[in-house]
Write a protein that binds this DNA or RNA. Structure first.
Length: 832
DNA sequence: TGATCCCGCCAACGT
DNA sequence: ACGTTGGCGGGATCA
């Protein structure tokens, strides 16, 4: 095994290298033993799996083939020798199993591909590390890395040495809830703030004095640390067999996840994570090496989490430069969803899984009396829809479902998506996984409700159906009393998410700015009251923009599902021989894209009526004047334009938005807002895809109302941050100021002007109000320009309480309240 | 370069 | 004592 995967690293002495490479083999001259070749053979028993994976990457495949060839003969050495002598040659390089191909992430994908996300609760799935290691052709050591992380999420549990039980994602939801809870208890949010604060301070004062106290307070609130978070029902198992519960990787993994779950923009930079994880244990001893090691570990964890589709790599750009970070892309973890502590009790190790599932069933039954299927155990937050949209770019239309260990299935899948697969970039393979997961989730969701299925299927899945005009289906959705807009207009379907019990949600959508990459000028926006009826009728869209938002990057998935896309039908056929449930799945996938609204409704209906559905009138379309750009933003305007009439944003009444465009003319220089739909939720859990109709009402092209102000006011009022009658001045004057946790500091920041230029602005007219804009670092190809705009405002309540309203260019946005978040010159963005 | 992170030594553990 | 785990960090790769 090692023989194959251990190509010489480089031009070192061939002999010594080979020796190293084949430690467990006969002398270096020993040609691959038949026995070893077999397991390593990419086209053997596990070939299906490999096929699937390699199929995603022509490169990998070809390489594997190449490898295979070389492995089968004693030519190996020769070849290597040869190659070595021509290190610079392409041949050699190509035959080299590129580091990437050996990455933990890819390995993890392979690993995950072996097991279903939601294994049958009837029979337990076991994992034998040895086997897996062998089949995946890697050292066991690597498997440990993966398993440990999975274990931290309770996706697997250790039964005995070399033996694990696979639970898949059945426990994920609960685990995340638990982790979030613990994360909150650990005050990670505050810790993050502290760290950021310190970073901030570092930038200005060179004396590391005050760090002392920071460190103090930091280290002080450590407590239940170093303990492995377990799930009721699972701990038994884990504890009994695995005494070392505080294993670093496992714990680290959990903590890392916690950080995501508790932080507002669910983005965590490695640096911060590392510091927090270190800081917890040993008191701040800025040990360089320790930090480095921590980072390394985090990468390992991150790779696995990425493979799971829970996070994705991004970069936070700030003055300091680009810093690696990760963004949570996993399911939203609703705060108060009662932890399903319906745990039964008696349970042996394997049982825990089924048990937890049982409890979930209970839960779901409660939620959906009529339903009893085990599949919809989870209470999929509607937000997932958003997530899915968020991840639109995920192409790879294939991989209907994540591969199961059954080879037959894999084959089927493969045959179904031959060509497509062949076009998928190797690295993008993971996306496939994500998608399949998404699909599964949807599947589950759908299965939960026939109604849902019925509603969605008719329109979305009609495979035989020719490129239908979105129009037909749209209306139906629109006619609904909900405040949603026609999905067809935008590739980014508008969605109204269920609200937290505490409050109503608002759907606001702004028109996407065409200048995704432009960051210097302020696009103009219009805030207009837009009754549903009107919305429904609106058809004009800035396809260019919209496409950019969702279809960009040639996202097959999206494209396929996009009703606007003629090719949509093209792929449907593949769904042919699927089961109805599978179809639902597919449909759901399709729905995500364009019928989110509908979908949402379905969910809403099927989910539970207790959810406060937001009045239709709460849809606030903020269209951007497509042309009212630069021209419209003369220096003068930038200076102090915004002539905002003190308008009171009273709670909108169904179907009506108490604001008029004219009232919201505000331009906030340096404030770049991209398309967004904002779901405002007092408690910070809403996220919604945006529905943007370009120039819908762009009649007012010249005016450039600033969405931020309107949104802000609207938000502030509805979130209760400001009296209904009060209005926050639409930042007539904006200054670039350093942002710090101390509001006071903000007031005088002229000296720090350079900091965060145009990134963070403060509305001097409204103390305690900041906005932060995250721009895409580089408008790479059709990748999604992840521009994030975030508005921070201090809550009257506590000095450290703030709320933030952030809008992502991908159409999602969220409002949250919580502890002070230091706007840090963070400019999130691009991914790799 | 700095960001990533593979690789595998070797110590802690389990049996 | 020996096999299993997995902490750790050198140094190779990648971007």
């Amino acid at each position: 095994r090692s023989v194959l995967k251990t190509p010489l690293k480089q031009a070192a002495t061939s002999h010594s290298v080979l020796t190293e490479i084949q430690p467990d083999c006969q002398p270096l001259t020993t040609p691959p033993k038949p026995k070893e070749i077999l397991p390593a053979d990419p086209w053997t028993p596990t070939s299906n799996l490999k096929m699937l994976i390699s199929a995603a990457s022509p490169e990998i495949r070809s390489r594997e083939q190449r490898r295979e060839l070389s492995n089968n003969t004693s030519e190996v050495l020769q070849a290597k020798h040869c190659l070595q002598e021509h290190l610079s040659g392409d041949e050699y390089e190509k035959s080299q199993p590129s580091r990437k191909e050996k990455s933990l992430g890819l390995l993890c994908h392979k690993f995950l591909a072996r097991y279903p996300d939601y294994p049958s609760t009837a029979e337990n799935t076991y994992i034998c590390l040895d086997e897996v290691a062998e089949e995946l052709n890697v050292e066991r050591r690597r498997i440990y890395d993966i398993v440990n992380v999975l274990e931290s999420l309770h996706m697997v549990s250790r039964l005995a040495k070399n033996r694990y039980a696979w639970h898949g994602r059945h426990n994920l939801s609960k685990t995340l809830h638990a982790l979030k809870k613990v994360g909150e208890e650990n005050k990670y949010t505050q810790q993050i703030q502290l760290i950021k604060k310190r970073e901030y301070e570092h930038e200005f004062d060179f004396d590391g004095e005050r760090h002392e106290e920071t460190a103090r307070s930091f280290g002080s609130n450590k407590r239940s640390e170093t303990s492995f978070v377990e799930l009721p029902g699972m701990e038994f198992c884990a504890a009994s067999v695995n005494s070392r519960k505080d294993k670093s990787l496992r714990v680290m993994s959990q903590k890392f996840v916690m950080l995501f779950l508790v932080s507002t923009p669910q983005i965590v930079s490695l640096e911060v994570a590392a510091k927090i994880l270190i800081g917890e244990d040993q008191l701040e001893d800025l040990d360089k090496s320790k930090f480095k090691t921590k980072i390394r570990r985090l990468y390992d964890i991150a790779n696995v989490l990425s493979s799971l589709g829970l996070i994705k790599k991004v970069h936070v750009t700030e003055e300091r430069g680009r810093k690696p970070a990760f963004k949570w892309t996993g399911p939203e973890v609703l705060p108060n969803i009662q932890e399903t502590k319906l745990e039964t009790n008696s349970a042996t190790c394997p049982p825990p899984a089924s048990e937890s599932i049982t409890s979930k069933e209970q839960c779901s039954k409660n939620l959906f009396p009529s339903r009893g299927k085990q599949t919809f155990t989870r209470h999929p937050s509607l937000i997932k829809l958003v997530k899915s949209i968020e991840n639109d770019r995920r192409k790879i239309q294939s991989a209907p479902t994540s591969p199961v260990k059954i080879s037959a299935r894999t084959d089927q899948n493969l045959s179904a998506f031959p060509s497509q697969m062949a076009q998928v970039p190797a690295i993008a393979k993971h996306q496939l996984e994500e998608q399949s997961k998404k699909a599964k989730e949807m599947k589950i969701k759908l299965s939960r409700s026939d109604l849902e299925c019925n509603l969605s299927s008719p329109e979305v899945v009609p495979k035989p159906e020719p490129p239908r005009t979105a129009a037909p289906s749209q209306p139906s959705a629109l006619t609904q009393p909900l405040g949603v807009c026609p999905p067809s207009h935008s590739s980014v379907p508008p969605v109204i998410l269920p609200q937290t019990p505490s409050g109503v949600s608002y759907a606001i959508y702004l028109h996407p700015s065409q200048a995704h990459t432009v960051t210097t000028y302020s696009p103009s926006f219009m805030l207009q009251p837009l009754p549903c009826a009107n919305v429904t009728g609106i058809k004009s869209i800035n396809s260019k923009v919209l496409n950019k938002v969702t279809t960009e990057e040639g996202d097959n998935q999206v494209a396929t599902d996009d009703p606007m896309k003629p090719l949509a039908a093209k792929e449907r056929p593949t769904i042919k021989s699927e089961t109805s449930s599978q179809r639902c799945l597919k449909r759901s996938q399709a729905l995500q894209e364009n019928n989110s609204i509908k979908k949402y409704r379905s969910d809403e209906e099927s989910l539970d009526t207790s959810m406060t559905f937001f009045p239709s009138g709460y849809l606030i379309p903020l269209t951007q004047c497509t042309h009212g750009n630069k021209a419209g933003f003369s220096e003068k305007e930038k200076a102090g334009m915004c002539s905002l009439q003190p308008t009171t944003y009273s709670p909108p009444i169904a179907g009506v938005i108490p604001v008029t465009a004219s009232e919201l003319k505000v331009n906030i220089p340096a404030f770049h807002i991209t398309p967004l739909n904002i779901m405002l939720s007092p408690t910070s859990i809403a996220a919604a895809p945006v529905l943007s109709n370009s120039c819908l009402n762009s009649s007012n092209t010249s005016s450039a109302p600033n969405p931020s102000s309107s949104v802000l006011n609207f938000t502030l009022q509805h979130v209760g941050l400001i009296p209904a009658g009060v209005q926050v001045p639409a930042s007539p004057v904006l200054q670039h100021v350093p942002v710090s946790s101390q509001p006071e500091n903000v007031s005088h920041g002229s000296e720090n002007m350079n900091l965060q230029e145009e990134k963070v602005s403060k509305n001097t007219a409204t103390p305690g109000l900041w906005w932060v804009e995250w721009e895409p670092s580089v408008p790479k190809e059709p990748q999604e320009p992840q521009t994030v705009t975030e508005i921070f405002f201090r809550t009257p309540g506590g000095p450290n309480t703030v709320s933030s309203l952030s809008a992502n260019s991908d159409g999602t946005a969220r409002v949250s309240q919580g502890t002070l978040y230091i706007p840090q010159r963070k400019l999130e963005v691009s991914e790799d």
